[in-house]
Design a protein around this nucleic acid. Structure first.
Length: 379
DNA sequence: AAGTCGGGGGA
DNA sequence: TCCCCAGACTT
């Protein structure tokens, strides 16, 4: 007579073959993970100490931004704003100039707002509770968790894209990591296994694993991974399938014509509106559509000879600018300038603009042209 | 839940 | 080309 083994009857495998639960996987690996991190971690500027101000700024700069891109900005930032109170006192434009080229400029504006709150409400230092940190502008669940755990050793999760990728592979999860429900699940997992006393290192170790071992857009370096023995994706050959991410939408394309208007050796720029793309930054005069030299000339209502400039393409997250351009020397100052809402234009020397006014890199081709025409950085 | 918000580096 | 990066905020 057939009798199922106890394991079959219970629908479980014997311990050595049984699938581990997500919690067992994470708990078993946490020791090796911490040892690996403390041995192998990169020497990064924001890891010199646990000053919450430095941790904060680094975490904001690192949002959707690579480590190598952040480094020069990180150093320069603290030369300009050594203390939080310097940040609160500085004009927003000075902060934006310091942020020029880094992208996602609302981060800079939110830093200033938060600095004002820290200065006024918290006496220029950081609150030491997760909720109060989370309430600051520009700080969401990830950044709050990072600051709270790294600077203050609070046992809270800090789940970013790296951690989502690592955890989806280690636990063998097919949940779409772009969904916020998945992020919440993963935060709950980390909350259950994070060790008080090493929360900062634990979170950073997960992040470091994602950045160095369980890398995006390539085969993970499983042989070096602290999760090697417990990783579901590795043991089941699923590292190619995980993590699951839904495809993105296509970008819209916008045609523009950039006009470098010169009047008595000065160039026209104007401030962009305070909301939307590249908010509050400065730009060269431009109009929608690709204009011919004749059409461009007619906009100025005076006798001009537009010189054709190189075309340029700039890709943002969700929109693409295809730009043509003209350099136009004006004989007289026009009443109004062409452009969408035609805010008041400023005529300034290129030297002044380059030093003082934040002009985003979307205009890099035209900035470079002016560098050559008027002399910019020495070659 | 879906859109918006930069820029650059690597496949 | 396309993808993705130590995400947050608005709608």
């Amino acid at each position: 007579m057939f009798r199922p083994s106890p394991y079959e009857a219970l629908q479980v495998l014997p311990p050595e073959e049984r699938e581990l639960s997500w919690k067992e996987r994470l708990l078993l690996a946490s020791g090796p993970l911490l040892s690996w991190y403390r041995r192998e971690k990169r020497d990064l500027p924001w890891r010199e100490n646990r000053d919450p101000y430095r941790i904060w700024i680094s975490e904001i700069m690192l949002q959707q931004t690579r480590v190598e891109a952040v480094k020069p900005y990180f150093f320069r930032f603290f030369e300009h704003f050594p203390r939080i109170s310097d940040l609160a006192a500085a004009p927003e434009e000075e902060l934006l100039k310091c942020w020029e080229g880094l992208g996602y400029y609302s981060r800079a504006r939110n830093i200033k707002k938060a600095a004002e709150i820290l200065t006024e409400k918290y006496n220029g230092s950081f609150p030491e509770s997760y909720g109060e940190i989370l309430a600051l502008p520009g700080i969401g669940s990830y950044t709050a968790g990072a600051i709270a755990s790294i600077a203050f050793e609070l046992p809270v999760p800090a789940v970013d894209g790296n951690v989502l990728r690592v955890l989806s592979r280690v636990t063998g999860s097919f949940d779409d990591i772009l969904k916020q429900s998945t992020k919440k699940k993963m935060e709950a997992l980390v909350s259950e296994v994070i060790q008080p006393g090493s929360a900062g290192d634990f979170n950073q170790a997960l992040i470091e694993t994602g950045a160095m071992i369980c890398i995006p857009g390539g085969a993970p370096l499983c042989s070096q991974c602290p999760f090697f023995t417990v990783c579901a994706a590795r043991s089941q050959g699923l590292t190619e399938k995980l993590p699951v991410k839904t495809p993105k939408k296509k970008r819209k394309i916008e045609e523009k014509t950039v006009l470098l208007l010169e009047y008595q050796d000065k160039i026209a720029i104007r401030k962009r509106r305070e909301d939307g793309l590249l908010a509050s930054l400065y730009e060269f005069v431009n109009v929608p559509g690709q204009l011919s030299a004749e059409e461009a000339g007619e906009l100025l209502e005076q006798e001009v000879r537009p010189e054709r400039l190189p075309e340029a393409k700039h890709i943002f997250s969700h929109v693409e600018w295809h730009m043509g351009g003209y350099f136009i020397s004006l004989k007289e100052m026009p009443e109004t300038l062409p452009g969408e809402e035609s805010g008041p234009a400023l005529f300034l020397t290129w030297e002044e603009i380059r030093k003082e006014y934040p002009v985003p890199n979307a205009f890099a081709v035209y900035k470079k042209y002016l560098d050559q025409r008027y002399g910019g950085e020495e070659e």
